[in-house]
Amino acid sequence: MRHRFSFLRISLATLSIFAFTFATSHAEHEDKIQILLLGDSSTAAGMPKVVAPKELRFEDVIRLLLAAEADLPPTNVINLGLSGEFIRGLIDSGRYEAKVSKLPGLDYIFIRYGLNDDSKRENFEANFPKDYHELLAKLRTDHPQAMLIPMTVIPFADEKTSTKINNLIRAVASEEKLTLFDIYPLYAVALKRGPDMLNYRAYPLSKIPDNLRSIAQRYVNAEADPKVVVLDNRLDAIFGHLPGWFRDRHPNIAGYNVIATETAKFLAPVIRERRAKK
């Protein structure tokens, strides 16, 4: 199946607004468990929504997997992930107050930050935990009934950087006495089936050899810096030899399905346990 992206002019920021509007405008809060996803681009799932708009969205897969458990009530999954976001940015930009603070009836809030914090937050190792504690305090105040669930980052950065980030997240979760959802090793196991099977390819058109541009052109998006974008390995045989072809580690649909599956596995027994205590 051929995909032509040249007509698409949807920025990730616009896409995030659209995703939020879609989720909240269709949310039915009565008799449904409300689940919120907070995080960066690895939560937002922006590129698959642009490239394959007819495919199930990341948040919908979580909802449907939970619905497959016959003893669980229906859920509504709201994805407020945003490409490039870090905790300080979420708070200081006003996005937390505008988009997160007033959402009604939240039951579970998954929090997955750290990758952008590491690159954007000065004095990261000291300030990231402080920012995380601040966000958790805000969430507790605004959503006192919600279970707060810190998550480790996926294997996106190198192992040393990932370990540094995840150790800080584990420490925050321990200090806050919160249950940690450790997605990192689960995603890493899935990657062993193929190191590039869970990430899409996004490669600058300017780096494609001139004699191959006719093949690449039909897969180019319309951003200011045009890239060849595919969600799978269909062009690996043609362009896989180019330096950096596999560099982008953002999840593709298969990657998000791994995260969605593990999220549902994590959450289903938690929901049962909390319901049993009521």
Rank of each mutant, 00 (worst) to 15 (best):
1 M>R: 11
4 R>C: 07
6 S>P: 01
9 R>H: 15
13 A>T: 14
13 A>W: 12
17 I>P: 00
20 F>C: 07
24 T>C: 14
29 H>W: 13
31 D>C: 07
38 L>W: 08
39 G>R: 01
42 S>C: 09
42 S>T: 15
50 V>M: 08
50 V>G: 00
51 V>S: 09
54 K>P: 00
56 L>M: 13
58 F>A: 01
61 V>P: 03
61 V>E: 14
61 V>G: 03
68 A>C: 05
75 T>S: 15
75 T>R: 10
78 I>K: 06
82 L>W: 10
83 S>L: 06
92 D>G: 00
92 D>F: 03
95 R>K: 11
106 L>A: 06
110 F>T: 08
112 R>W: 00
112 R>D: 04
117 D>G: 05
123 N>C: 02
126 A>Y: 06
133 H>M: 06
135 L>W: 08
146 A>N: 08
147 M>Q: 14
147 M>S: 14
147 M>H: 07
148 L>P: 08
153 V>E: 11
154 I>D: 02
160 K>N: 08
163 T>R: 14
166 N>D: 07
166 N>K: 02
166 N>A: 01
169 I>K: 09
174 S>F: 04
175 E>V: 01
184 Y>A: 02
187 Y>M: 15
187 Y>H: 05
189 V>R: 14
190 A>Q: 12
193 R>W: 00
194 G>K: 06
198 L>A: 09
200 Y>H: 15
202 A>D: 11
205 L>P: 03
207 K>V: 01
210 D>T: 13
211 N>I: 06
213 R>N: 02
213 R>G: 00
214 S>C: 01
219 Y>L: 02
219 Y>F: 14
219 Y>H: 10
220 V>M: 10
221 N>Y: 13
223 E>Y: 09
225 D>W: 06
229 V>T: 11
230 V>E: 07
231 L>P: 12
231 L>Y: 12
232 D>V: 02
234 R>L: 11
238 I>C: 02
242 L>M: 10
246 F>A: 02
247 R>M: 10
248 D>G: 02
249 R>H: 13
249 R>K: 15
262 E>T: 04
263 T>G: 05
266 F>H: 03
271 I>N: 08
272 R>C: 02
274 R>D: 03
275 R>K: 03
278 K>M: 02
